[in-house]
Design a protein around this nucleic acid. Structure first.
Lengths: 246, 246
DNA sequence: CGGGGGTTTGAGTCCGTTCAAAATACGTGG
DNA sequence: CCACGTATTTTGAACGGACTCAAACCCCCG
């Protein structure tokens, strides 16, 4: 557990939030320019190397984090050392909202799964902005509600779908964000995760992930080489993970 | 999927929200008396027999539901028919908030696991109250954040704890609400659920629940007869489900 | 080039599932 | 209030998907 003041953990790389390319994706879009300026002044930015922890489960939560680039992951651990990757956090998305609004310490850690750049928004500013903008609270409410919906889907999927189907779904879920069209029309995706992290995300083990990959390859649904995936039969993958789509 | 206007589904049993014994538990406590009166006038109350569905997954969500008595359960189903009980809803607690604030149809159904009495609060009133009381939004935000935390705990628990430990935790979780002290100092709990529903809640099968029960009995941690449970070794149960406590 | 972490493969085991049947609880009507 | 029929729960036996342990493999980086 780190005892550092979060403000101290961040350098001074100051990019105005008004210019942030991620802005339209986040809840900040409900703010007017003046408030965005406030936000831009209050926030601090910092980069993390792959594997570095952005905040620790158990630390007090005194603000929220916004990913500017790279992929982060939120991991929850119990006292026996069991852990899962609850979800990934992509550029433009927010981490730490749950704990901030629940008024608890962080119930999970966040770490950089690849090199990551993150903005930290102090809780005080957040409170000030929300007092001035009721719509901001509603935006957060909507956001967290969506997250809760996702969590419920995960609970259902983990107990009712085999690992191979969860793997199929995972690959497709990265398609939009990490996919690239090949010359021959097929789609390539670069997995932003270690096999071990994929295992943690799918609630299984690295060996089982490897076997799921072997199985998908054998059936010709996709071709894998390292982190690079070529999607050969998107429809089959889709159908296999059907239960997770709705 | 029901197409009934929710207002029509409810009778006119009108108990003032000001008197509702559940009030202090819910987010409504941030309202002043005038607003509570508005709430009391707008809401409608209805009773459901065991097994009846209160709202259906897929139905439009145009308000939220508050359980007045009895135990309800929220169940999510996928297109293949797999289902889980996501959580129980006890008197004083709310259902349907997630969908309402996300602005989606219900993503899960709610049903009466025993005879249940429920208040329905139309969305329009909710919006009006929230516009007048920013603290209400914050209360909801906190509530949903807690729910999200619970969902995350469930994800971790389901993948890292054996059924028997999840069962132990489940029994203890009912202790405060359904527990009764026996003459000899031990604690009795009446399970408000079918074995089948317990299985759905613990993400397993009825047969496995029966075996977990047999196993806990054999080791003398608890004694079961039907839905009645006598907790013999609370500490052992506690320790067994440790990972879920934090 | 030689580590060394990450990944794959193999073999054996286990927990939970499935299918089936027996036992028990329960509601309902006589 | 009891008897019957049905639903729920328990038990049994066999199976299976995922896990564990362990070794081989393969990159990727220094």
């Amino acid at each position: 557990m780190s005892t550092l003041d979060p403000k101290l953990k961040f350098g001074m790389l100051s990019l105005s939030c008004l210019d942030c390319p991620m802005m339209p994706l986040s809840e900040w879009h409900v703010l007017d320019d003046a408030d965005r300026e406030t936000l831009a002044e209050a926030k601090s930015t910092r980069s993390f190397a792959k594997g570095e922890v952005i905040f620790f489960q158990g630390d007090p939560c005194d603000g929220i984090y916004c990913v500017k680039s790279g992929t982060a992951g939120v991991r929850k651990t119990d006292e026996k050392g069991n852990a899962v990757l609850l979800y990934l956090v992509h550029p433009g998305e927010t981490m730490g909202m749950r704990s901030f609004f629940a008024g608890t310490e962080f119930q999970a850690s966040a770490e950089a799964l690849e090199p990551v750049s993150v903005c930290f928004i102090p809780g005080g500013v957040l409170k000030k902005l929300s007092a001035r903008n009721p719509q901001l609270d509603l935006a957060f409410l909507k956001h967290i509600s969506r997250e809760l919906g996702d969590a419920h889907k995960t609970i259902l999927a983990n107990t009712s779908l085999p690992v191979r189907a969860r793997m199929a779904h995972f690959i497709l879920s990265l398609k939009d964000r990490y996919g690239e069209e090949n010359k021959d029309g097929t789609l390539s995706v670069r997995l932003p995760l270690t096999r071990h992290d994929i295992a943690d995300l799918l609630a299984t083990r690295p060996e089982t992930v490897a076997r799921a990959i072997a199985s998908l390859t054998k059936d010709g649904l996709a071709r894998f080489s390292g982190r690079q995936v070529v999607i050969l039969k998107p429809d089959s993958l889709q159908e296999e993970s059907e239960a997770l789509t709705e």
